[in-house]
Design a protein around this nucleic acid. Structure first.
Lengths: 225, 225
DNA sequence: CCTTTGAGTGCACGGATGTACACCGAAAGT
DNA sequence: ACTTTCGGTGTACATCCGTGCACTCAAAGG
């Protein structure tokens, strides 16, 4: 695969600095781990399996990570970096005018695009969120909480949202939406690329989002009256 | 712990038939597995760990299960048996009059009660749902689908629900509710018994359920007009 | 009473795992 | 041109893993 060219093969001499090589091996380790743990979980993954997949000797692993756990935390960082770039895309998009329907459609579309772009990252988060080592779980939980907070402030900015919403209510609403979207991503991934499953899942997600958004508004106004 | 009395201790002679003893050991294995995999996942659990915890020799495990995977499937059965008993309780309860608020409050209360009664079962389902071996994942997914279907028919029977709801819409709504409730259970469990976390989670769950239910109705009527 | 059954034992094995240690050799630094 | 740095190597070892096999011995059953 993408194994780092062993020193003996430097006959080819593709001028590559030392830090570049190190970074390349690090990447290979991250990718190998992401792929290998796909059928179960990081906790069921051995250092030796990763090393073999990468094409280095087991002890070579320690040059990059102190343990599998540290590897996991690095993967959390990486996964959420890509997720945040998606959220930024949603936020800056001008694919919708301002109606709920168009916001929902654009958001679901972007979510699906990103799940396609980084399927292993999403799968990793979904899995380790509940099954990882405690430190990994906590890291993911914290990141998701940040996502919910960001979403809450975004919702507050929507023109259609009354300005008397409490921050608590915004948090609750965004929590519900995030939960539904995480579940949607999980279903798409577990659908294993089948177009029909995915289209169905997308349609369900759109409907659910509409129910939630319109419902929240209605509920809100009923609280006010 | 609850290890089966070894044959040598039969001096005590508590007249116990052979099948009773076998069943007791089987239970001990199930309990030990449920407890041991709590900090990670079934896939990261060895036959030997379970055997040691139970107090039998490793090969003794095979008298009860062919593999850890089969153990996992048995745990899925057991977990959902208890979950279904909860759902039956919700369905038959007369704790509410018929208003949405009382339905929501009663449902959330019963959910929390049951999470308290079977915390390991809920945690197991939440974990293995995404991180288990494929066969275990599939078994759980199937069971959850059944729960969604049952909930959909229950919702259809509510007096407040218009009778022109399509089965699709009912499925979508119940899927959303189940997702939110699974998430609620996960949060309660990860709160690790702290009363404050739990009360907060319950309140969030109630609010989310109200948003969803009232929202679905509003959305529905807006579709009709 | 004598036979059968079967849950649990004890040992032994080949293989995988994490990690310690000494080593290499090319790139980086001087 | 030299020394240093440091990814990556190779060997080695204690530990755990699943599992095969022959065994025990009390309950079940004729």
């Amino acid at each position: 695969m993408t194994r780092p060219t062993p020193p003996t093969a430097t006959l080819v001499r593709v001028t590559e600095t030392r830090v570049e090589r190190k970074e390349r091996t690090r990447r290979a380790i991250l990718d190998a781990a992401l792929e290998l743990c796909e059928e179960s979980s990081l906790v069921a993954l051995s250092l030796r399996q990763v090393a073999k997949e990468v094409g280095i000797v087991p002890t070579g692993f320690y040059r990059h990570f102190e343990s599998i756990e540290e590897l996991g935390l690095a993967l959390v960082d990486e996964s959420f970096a890509s997720l945040r770039s998606m959220l930024r895309a949603v936020r800056q998009t001008d694919r919708f005018d301002g109606s709920f329907a168009s916001i929902v459609d654009a958001s679901v579309d972007i979510l699906l695009e990103h799940v396609h772009a980084h399927p292993r990252h999403f799968a990793f988060i979904a899995r380790e969120r509940t099954a990882g080592q405690p430190s990994v779980r906590d890291a993911i939980r914290h990141e998701i909480e940040l996502c919910e907070l960001e979403l809450a402030t975004d919702i507050a900015k929507l023109p259609a949202v009354a300005d008397d919403w409490s921050t608590d209510d915004l948090r609750i609403l965004s929590g519900l939406i995030v939960t539904a979207m995480v579940s949607t991503a999980e279903q798409v991934i577990s659908g294993h690329g089948r177009r029909a499953v995915e289209e169905r899942t997308a349609e369900v997600a759109r409907t659910q989002l509409r129910m939630v958004l319109i419902g929240a508004l209605q509920w809100r106004s009923s609280q006010r009256s």
